[in-house]
Design a protein around this nucleic acid. Structure first.
Ligand SMILES: [Mg+2]
Ligand SMILES: [Mg+2]
Lengths: 263, 263
DNA sequence: TCATACATGTCGACG
DNA sequence: CGTCGACGTGTATGA
């Protein structure tokens, strides 16, 4: 057993000896890595079985669990944060880890018959994470500079004035016509057009002059005719310009752009 | 340095010494775990910065990369499989790992100034993975037993007979009316209804007797009236019954239900 | 709790 | 290479 300030490595533990180590690590909210020969059963929204083989199991501070094989970005099995974790010795020789989630009800069972390597990590991490440009960022920059949509476009902030809750931006054009804007951070596909139509259509019955505009950096192939057929519009958005606009105004709400890990 | 048959553990490597170890592990398509103090920059569809802190970086056999903090099911930064990985010593003291993806063009840069623990894993894993019930499974069971939809319903297999490529099942009811079936493995939401309408509507212009049926285990709240208003139907599916039907007929195409890791 | 929409979604299939 | 739809999607948000 090697000990350093922030990690512990346990090669070739017996399942029996691993029990205390693992329970302790979970209780202390360490990050736990278990490498060994295992079998995995999942039951919930779907069901799955994974036959015996060597995998890397990660149990994180928030009790999220990821089971990784040697390939694939995505874990072969997993449990999102917050599940209940139980450990148990089976037949005196195997380690069973059970992780249960209640909503939706899902159970994950990992049975190890051999543990090559158990590692406990206490990660010190206060680093800020910032990401742009999200759809929310585009929205903010349009709010800050409505001319990104068109001259004399005005956003209506008051939520009481908004027709429904899912509209990205509601505003008024220079003629006073109501405008619904659907923002996409990537290429506009058919789905986005249908989504916008879903917002516009019910309102156009009471006000036929209502306009629907998709604001996005790129239009997919064949989308322009579709928009035309539904009498909807497209406004190209330069995401770099959005980043500029936000950067210039960041003094006020810099906290919006940074998040820290919860633990 | 500890050596076992299938893993190597390197505590407290200097960035300089880590270079060979890491390059070698990537070349040999091992699974590589790097724990240390790092900073991460990502640029691509979006851009992100992650300030200094301790994280676990996983480089898998297929050159997928995951950067995990102490919490969160999802990695804070990542690169999907197949990226190009470059390693470099910066200023003689820091380790830079760069992972580049070409489609879409995205770069991930990790800069380590301290490596607590480098682990190399050679996972032996031939275990089969099977999952059910997917939408595809429901489709197969309806094909095997069309009465799951209704008595005397018949599926039309011939793709040349199918109106468009995205329809889950195309068939004919006992009156000879064409039927389009949209399958959902979970709760039916508005989106699924709109999707089905998108398939049915263009065809109902030439044949007004065409029917659209959503086959799923559950109907969302408020979906029934929506279906009615669009003249679409709902057929409840018992997924356990689907599993039964497939299990009984599995002799023929058992290979469809199992996949093995690529490496 | 349920419904809705975003995501660097990822992944696979098809054209 | 782009488009489309499934996914145990996960995650945040609002009713
Ligand atoms: Mg929106
Ligand atoms: Mg479908």
């Amino acid at each position: 057993m090697l000990q350093k300030t922030n990690f512990f490595v346990y090669p070739n533990l017996t399942p029996k000896d691993s029990l205390f180590v693992i329970q302790n690590a979970v209780a202390k909210q360490s990050v736990l890595l278990i490498v060994g020969n295992c079998r995995v059963d999942y039951e919930g929204r779907a069901s799955s079985k994974l036959d015996w083989g060597e995998r890397l199991v990660m149990i994180k501070s928030d009790r999220s669990i990821l089971i990784h094989r040697s390939t694939g970005y995505e874990p072969v099995n997993w449990q999102p944060p917050g599940c209940i974790i139980q450990t148990e010795l089976v037949s005196g020789i195997d380690l069973k880890i059970r992780a249960i989630r209640s909503q939706p009800r899902e159970t994950l069972e990992i049975l190890f018959d051999e543990l090559s390597l158990v590692t406990i990590l206490n990660l010190v991490d206060k680093g800020a994470f910032s990401l742009y440009v999200s759809e929310e960022d585009i929205k903010k920059s349009i709010m800050l500079r409505p001319s990104l949509i068109e001259e004399n476009f005005r956003c209506i902030i008051d939520e009481k004035m908004q027709p429904t809750g899912f509209i990205d931006i509601f505003g008024v054009d220079e003629e006073g016509n109501p405008v619904i804007i659907e923002i996409k951070r990537g290429t506009v596909r058919k789905e986005a057009v249908i989504q916008l139509r879903g917002y516009v259509e019910p309102l156009s019955k009471t006000n036929p002059k209502i306009r629907g505009i998709i604001a996005a950096p790129k239009l997919g192939k064949g989308i322009k005719p579709l928009l035309d057929s539904m009498n909807l519009e497209y406004k190209r958005i330069n995401v770099k310009k959005c980043a500029e606009i936000l950067k210039r105004s960041e003094g006020s709400k810099i906290s919006d752009f940074f998040t820290k890990p919860k633990s």
